[in-house]
Simulated assay, not measured.
Amino acid sequence: MFSQTKKKDSLKEEAIKAVNLYKKNFKEILPAQTLQGEDLERLNSHSVADALRYFSGVQIKDYGGMGGLKTVNIRSLGSQHVGVFYDGIQLGNAQNGLVDLGKYSLDDLEEISLYNGQKSEIFQPAKDFGSSGSIYLQPRTPVFKGAGKTNLVVRAKSASIDLFNPSFRLEQKISKRVSASFSAEFMQSDGIYRFRYAKKYPDGQQAYDTIAKRRDSDIKAKRFETSLNGTVNNGSWNIRGYGYISDRGMPAPIVNSRFNGRGARLSDENYFIQANLRKSFFQNWKPS
């Protein structure tokens, strides 16, 4: 009954403020497969090669042992046609043309992206367009919570093949706009593991059954990385240094019960320093 009661409403005219909506007119032609943030940390993987196993359309090739090469084959086009980019720099190997993804740790990575081709951006180096598939590794940028100024992460891994793998990462907030980070990792293993080797005669009788040891699969590697990050008005800058030194062995095949075949040795010394600056000078124009 009370709903039938009419009440007079008063309206007050006010000017409604305009709301501007901006949208980036960008659409990827081929969406990427991405692992980042907490999802990447929960994998508990040792290297980039271990994390790439969770992507579809990828074949991981492991050439044996802790020190063996670990390469990626995308869409069966060969590992030589896969471009690997670390913070915008394309990685390479002058020895055999293959990029060993086993030597890049996940401790300092913020995101891993896999593209069938390359990114759908206009401004890219010509090297990006020369690969049938591309893997982009984005290093971690320091993030400080609350009033904290220091982040420290220390890890240590061990395994049954005499593996010793300590690492740490230190992040320091220098000022309101400048932060620095430093990380280092050491990996050592003799790579000796036991396996069962048996042989039978054509009539099915057991010839011998023995326990052998696989050798020449050792590794000793050191990695260090440092970066200086900062922000400016409508932009950011970054300076990064990277180094990797390793000496490792790759075991030889067992032929005619010869267990002590001489394997191969692989030594690496990789260094690079790079800097980048990104700044917007106009409201409607941004760098890419």
Rank of each mutant, 00 (worst) to 15 (best):
I273W: 03
E41H: 13
G204H: 11
K286A: 05
E111Q: 04
F164R: 12
K17V: 14
F2P: 04
Y193R: 12
A221V: 08
I122P: 00
G191E: 14
G249Y: 00
G57T: 03
P125V: 08
M1G: 13
D247L: 00
S227R: 11
G263S: 03
G97P: 03
E13W: 10
N20L: 02
S257E: 14
K213T: 06
A180M: 05
E38M: 13
L40D: 12
P125M: 09
G130L: 12
I211V: 15
E110Y: 02
T5I: 05
L163D: 10
L277W: 06
N234K: 04
R262Q: 11
D216P: 01
Q36T: 09
S134P: 02
W285I: 09
N25F: 06
N93A: 06
V82M: 03
Q188C: 08
S181C: 03
L11V: 09
N93D: 14
R278P: 01
G68I: 02
A32F: 00
I254N: 09
G235H: 01
V82K: 01
P166F: 15
V232I: 05
S257G: 13
F26G: 05
I60K: 10
K222A: 08
K27R: 15
E171T: 06
I161L: 13
S113R: 12
Q138K: 10
G97Y: 04
Q188F: 09
D39K: 09
N260A: 13
N229F: 05
K220C: 03
A198P: 07
D268G: 04
L228A: 02
S45I: 08
L91P: 02
K12G: 09
K145S: 05
K103E: 07
D216K: 01
P139S: 08
N260P: 04
G146K: 07
D209Q: 11
A94H: 12
R258F: 14
R140I: 11
E225N: 07
F144P: 06
Y193M: 11
A156V: 15
G249I: 01
D190Y: 08
I60C: 09
V58L: 06
E111T: 01
N116W: 00
Y63G: 04
F123S: 07
A49F: 12
K6S: 01
E121M: 14
R214K: 08
Y136W: 00
G133E: 01
L91D: 04
I161P: 06
Y197F: 14
V99I: 13
P125Y: 10
S158H: 12
H46Q: 14
K199V: 15
E121F: 14
E110M: 05
S158D: 10
I211K: 14
F281H: 07
G243V: 05
F129C: 01
F259M: 14
Y271E: 05
L114I: 03
H46W: 12
F281W: 11
G64D: 05
I122K: 02
A252I: 12
E185D: 14
I89L: 14
D247G: 02
P31M: 03
D216H: 04
Y201M: 12
K6N: 02
A32D: 04
L11A: 06
V153S: 13
F259C: 10
G102C: 07
D190N: 15
A275C: 12
A32Q: 05
Q188E: 13
S160Y: 13
N256G: 11
D162P: 07
I239W: 03
I211Q: 15
N276H: 13
E185W: 13
N270S: 11
G133S: 02
Q188P: 09
E14R: 06
S158T: 14
G204P: 10
